[in-house]
Design a protein around this nucleic acid. Sequence first.
DNA 1: GGGGAATTACGATGGTCCTCGTACCATGAA
DNA 2: TTCATGGTACGAGGACCATCGTAATTCCCC
Lengths: 123, 123
Amino acid sequence: MPTETPSAGTATGARALEHPRCEDIRLAEVLHALADPMRLRIVCRLAAAHTDLNCADIELPVSRSTCTHHFRVLRENGVIRQSYRGTAKMNALRTEDLDALFPGLIDGVLRAADLQAERLGAH
Amino acid sequence: MPTETPSAGTATGARALEHPRCEDIRLAEVLHALADPMRLRIVCRLAAAHTDLNCADIELPVSRSTCTHHFRVLRENGVIRQSYRGTAKMNALRTEDLDALFPGLIDGVLRAADLQAERLGAH
DNA sequence: GGGGAATTACGATGGTCCTCGTACCATGAA
DNA sequence: TTCATGGTACGAGGACCATCGTAATTCCCC
């Protein structure tokens, strides 16, 4: 029960979320962000949905904190953009930025993921 | 000075090199193999050269053992194919296999790497 | 057979990553 | 104000990774 906020900092309404600028996005880091099954799944879901998605809308077989971790890795490496909407946090692929930097890369990865899912899932 | 070879094993001429079969290659592992600046450089050099390349032909600012390590990661994850030619070891991209599994993926990564090099190098 | 060149194996080190549980914080609704 | 919800911070554990130096291996050539 804080009577006031002592070390408030810049706690003015919306919390701040750091995103790398386009010119700071590096290919190796994007690839690293994508090189994890959980994060690959997140990215596929975001690409399939054509609107922003809540963190909780993407079911993952890991704990809450791990989920937060993966979303942060994706954000910090320039793959997704996150923003607060009330108590929820919305996520979206940075499609335009990535397409401008690395044309065709994300599409290639998404298609590869789909093909592999088809190959392994349906058998 | 061994008078004979006791635990020879299968030392019959060419040493064996394990490569994953196509159906065992996983997207996340390929991306992980590519998500390293050194390995990305190796892959670009291999793609630029249209013949197999000797390990020593690709200059990297790391030690010999580290170099070996990176080549092995690339091979074990299905990105390159290695073979012995005399005392040298030749390397080549598994272009056909990768294109069959993930069409456009490698091309996208290579183009992205070129674009980034151009963007960062020329400034 | 012996010398030399290319590469690997081994062991170590310092760092990063994925995962988790628990405690905490921000927001909106009752 | 109080509660519930959705997310974060922190710390820890266990695994993996990039890097190196040194010793060993394999092959070609003389």
